[in-house]
Write a protein that binds this DNA or RNA. Structure first.
Lengths: 337, 337
DNA sequence: CTGTTAGCGCCTTCAT
DNA sequence: ATGAAGGCGCTAACAG
């Protein structure tokens, strides 16, 4: 490999070839001011001819805009792909570069920040509250994904409706399938979605006069292996249950595995349900009853809010995307699949 | 939201406070030349005091280095997460920003290029050969992932061993389970891995004196739904087969679904095997026999090669990571899971 | 070891 | 509608 040329074609080359000043070329590029159509044509031709591409750093230095957006993520789950697709689609369409970092430090200064981005998309498990507060005080544009802002900070947030859907799902387990001892497999302790899902679960229990049993609520951590171990433990301890509501589909899949290993029939002996409707969920056996979360749309909306913010246009403080029950076979229904 | 401050603290402010010249501060920051410890301390203090963060664009403009690496991907499969984890780990450790784009244009000029990155990681389905050639001629650092360089271009490539593992897997289907009519579910036509896997499949057939039947090779496209439809079609057409070797696990899962829908027992009536060992594969029913591909390591290695290239250090022309057979139950074995 | 001074490539007043 | 010129923040010779 050889070294790349220190200098490529610049705006000056274009100007020379088009026989205009660099200012005019700049105007044409940025549509910052009208340019006579004659000149426009010449500039256009020169740019194409020279294959001119504006040097991002120079533009940034001059404008004090990075023209880039950052995405901060913590651990990477399977739903990251659709989420990313949504985000990338709008950032790209809006003409921003997308920087991404999964640095687990959670604290500032980060690899992503005001020095290299105009704004940040931050995922629930990627940044500490203190760091968020700090960024907010610097008036640095941020939008939160699957996480509410800290008390008092007006940082836009986009997430999905959790509670009502969970409530409906657990209602279904109880009403349609007569389940009465339903395990809830929690997500990580600092995940709000999981808390809301748990709230829906408890509401359903209450509404049907079913007692809340602490032993039925155990760790899932959005992790198949953890869920599998938890269910295994319950089984071993002889805790009776006839259904499992998992905080996400990954967790539900872990539960399925544990149940199968123990020879428990799903859904005949125990119903299983999850949350998210990930790509895999329709394909496990039995196909998973779950709640569909519009993950890609979450990504799109979040990115759109950030673009708005960066452009000093109004942004929604909170976007709650609707979710939808999807009944398949793991709950005991005949199912769609 | 308010607007961010147009100007922050610059190197000049630091210089003034430390009572030195900007050049000295710059030297200290970049360790470009020795600085007396006294001065170093003052500069250090001033930087901390002022919370100085170098303006990336200014550095980039001055040095002609973007200090950023780009990742170009096409469609996003589930194995993207581990892959990304590997990549991000090393780019981050090496001090580079990571830009990512899934723009489907495949042609230059791209959103990622010499204007905003020092080098590119390009995934097999993300860039046309012509574009690759062009970039190569500009001496722009590139590392290919799961794709060989076009004829004559010395572009480093990292991928996994496909053929021998496929051969072993199909051998196993034939020898251990007596399968003789084995379907191969192809990946996309332009995917090299799929071709190599198919070659391994044909070698195994040959080695056992089994005839190659064109009707048994059909589209999988690394897509569950496509695979499901293909197997469904075969079943409907009355084509006899006793095993399915899918070009990847996603595809295998689609096959599993089609077989189940048709009431065919896996593995009793038909063996199924895939490739990759994705996160889900141990959890489907029955657990999938497959070939483990070290996806995260592929990401790490590719990123490392690119870092080397960018730093004008030698890079391996080809890195072929070893794969490993993982026998579970879908082939007919008792299995691990 | 340290200071001075040109640029890097582009944008943006300010004139014209 | 267009050109000239200053500057964005930093690095990198070149002196000293």
């Amino acid at each position: 490999m050889t070294r790349s040329k220190p200098s490529s074609v610049t705006i000056r080359d274009v100007a020379r070839q088009a026989k205009v000043s660099v200012a005019t070329v700049s105007r044409y590029i940025n549509r910052a001011a009208p340019v006579s159509s004659e000149v426009a044509a010449r500039v256009q031709a020169a740019m194409a001819n020279l294959k001119f591409v504006p040097h991002a750093s120079a533009q940034r230095l001059a404008t004090h805009k990075t023209n880039a957006l950052g995405l901060l993520v913590g651990s990477l789950h399977d739903f990251f792909s659709p989420m990313f697709t949504g985000i990338e689609g709008v950032t790209n369409a809006a003409g921003f570069d997308l920087l991404i970092s999964s640095s687990h430090q959670k604290e500032l200064p980060l690899t992503l920040g005001p020095h290299n981005t105009d704004g940040l998309l931050v995922f629930w498990d990627s940044l500490s509250q203190a760091s968020l507060r700090h960024a907010y005080e610097q008036a640095f544009p941020i939008v939160l994904i699957h996480q509410s802002p800290p008390e008092g900070l007006a940082i836009p947030c986009v997430t999905v409706e959790n509670q009502a859907a969970s409530r409906r799902l657990v209602d279904h387990l109880i009403e349609a399938h007569g389940r009465r001892r339903i395990v809830f497999l929690r997500g990580p302790a600092d995940n709000e979605d999981s808390w809301r899902r748990e709230t829906g679960y408890r509401q359903a229990l209450d509404a049907h006069g079913l007692p809340f049993d602490q032993r039925l609520v155990t760790a899932g951590d959005y992790d198949r292996a953890v869920a599998e171990a938890s269910i295994g433990r319950l089984l071993k301890a002889g805790v009776e249950f006839d259904a499992v509501f998992a905080a996400d589909d990954d967790t539900a899949v872990g539960a399925l595995a544990a149940l199968r290993a123990a020879g428990r029939q799903v859904p005949e002996e125990v119903s299983v349900a999850g949350f998210d409707d990930q790509r895999i969920s329709a394909y496990v056996s039995p196909p998973l009853t779950t709640v569909r979360a519009p993950t890609e749309e979450v990504g799109r909306q979040a990115a759109q809010q950030l673009v708005n913010l960066v452009r000093h246009k109004p942004a929604e403080p909170l976007i709650l995307l609707p979710t939808e029950l999807v009944i398949r076979r793991s709950c005991g229904c005949a199912g769609e699949a």
